[in-house]
Design a binder for these strands. Sequence first.
RNA 1: GCCGGCGUAGCUCAGUCGGUAGAGCAACUCACUUGUAAUGAGUAGGUCGCCGGUUCGACUCCGGCCGCCGGCUCCA
Length: 603
Amino acid sequence: MAGEGESIWRDEGTLNMEMTGATGAAFAEDQDTFWHTTTHIMAQAVCRLFPSARYAIGPTIEAGFYYDFDLGRNFLPEDLEKIEAEMRKIVEENHTVEHMLWTKPEAAEFFEKRGQMFKVELIQGLPEGKVSIYRQGEFTDLCRGPHLKRTGLVRHFKLLSFSGCYWRANDKGPKLQRIYGISYQDTKMLTEFVRRREEAEKRDHRRLGVELDLFSMDETLGGGLVLYHPKGSAMRAVIEDFLKRAHRKLGYEYIYSPHMANANLWKISGHYENYKENMYFTQIEEQEFGIKPMNCPFHIQVYRSHLRSYRELPIRYFELGTVYRFERSGVLHGLLRVRGFTQDDAHIFCREDQLTGEIERVLDFVRSVLRLFGFSYTVGVGTRPEKYMGDPALWDRATAALRAALEARQMAYEMHEGDGAFYGPKIDVALKDALGRSWQGPTIQVDFNLPQRFELEYVGEGGDRKCPVMIHRAILGSLERFIGCLIEHYAGDFPLWLAPVQARVIAVAESAAGAYSREVLDQLRASDVRADSDNREETLGKRIRAAELEKIPVIAVLGEREAQGRSVNVRRRGKKDQEVLSLTEFVERMRRESATPDGAIEL
RNA sequence: GCCGGCGUAGCUCAGUCGGUAGAGCAACUCACUUGUAAUGAGUAGGUCGCCGGUUCGACUCCGGCCGCCGGCUCCA
């Protein structure tokens, strides 16, 4: 709602919509206003075409806007065209956008008379005082604004999609229809937006997963379960190898634990009470077993296996732990949201005075790994949720420790109230996919609760028994989600060390270099390079093209010249110009450049 | 789960008014023996997602189910 002195509209004179010269906040705000007015134009068009339509809310989003309607029937694809046509008319008519302040009863009466019950409900939820109303032509809407001054300023727009949704996101409430759209002042920006969207679709990991033969999902298996093909498995193995080395260097000990456990374990841990709806259970010899949704209780049991001294702490257990969680079928999404996944999970048991230091070490670890992969990310701190266990005072201490570590490392973060795990607050790091959607990857959680529930202890300096604190943490999050993000991040053009096939050996013709090509392949493999060959009876051009489409980083072409001179003609992915190296030098270079980073984390 | 859309060969897709399906790529065979992004000819490949209904007859129409895709948080 607009208050005294706030801007209630923007004219073309104050708009700063040019891509060049527009700076951060001002640009974003003007863009927002532009989109907001566009969504009103869309609502106006819908109301003209569907006079009985009731309009609900129409906010702007990160890219564009939407508006929710109840119109008694579903939208059809051809409706979007009709609505766009009507919107063009409204732009052409160039209505002045009027701003008014009404009393709540006035506004409620106005919308009630017109059957706009959603607006009436919104008005009732507003604080006492005047409510802000905007009107353009025959269309009147409750809206905080600001808006453009005239509808004629919205020149280039496009309706993108429609889908079902609910009033106030409540699946028991009224069902609505939502239309998404985008608009720009400049036609070039609109074209650019559409182009970028198409570009992003090409990076989609589900599409590249098929094209590059990395993984698949199979309805016969069930939703959310991943089959890694040989090439996807090769990548995963590289990442696992990297993780194991990095953890070893940072003082973690690698362990294994089973995939399921007696329900009694889950009762002690609190999962039975707080996480049951996400778990799979099975009955064996009248005993109930739960498949693990988390690894923590197992690591705790390893800690408990004998008495610990304060001198041993911190103890850091690391596992590539495969867990299963029930997720509602509608939320599954390629590799980015699955039901079975493997976490690069670790649990650190330490004294409370070691807590902040340990969190800082984990933050450094996360940052250096994300830097290695070139990811950008955002950081949030999730606090105590509704369903929690333990003493709120401990929660506060845990949250304070997380924030202190972030501040010590000067990392910007947002507070996400109520977003913590049921046993403790957490730092979440979000990575973005090709379409700009955020996915939680790395996470750091402080837990005073499970150590108490499992009655963990260590012998202190004075011989007294004390309870350690636990940190649950994952660096990548899950391998599935991370690999999905990685595919989109690199658009399948993986750096040499990650590429499933690092080099392909191609003999120009069997007669010219067949035997030599097999020797080159053997030498590469002997040097731990992931290499294969393509000596099919196809033209060289066709085999080069196939290798380029498979995004193989290095192509070694061998003909009579190379066989005679024991050399290799090297073509790098996407580059036409080639380089000739001696066989020895080629193999040595490949060995060096294609090796997995040794896990030496720069702290 | 809910709302909407979609489901035809390994992949991308065509298939008119209801008369049991077709192309390109990939695969395979043969010829060519190839010098940096598609050589030519041929062969094979389908319970049209599954189940039921209507019909003389269903990829097509109707119902149910399964799966996939988008959305269901970003507060007038």
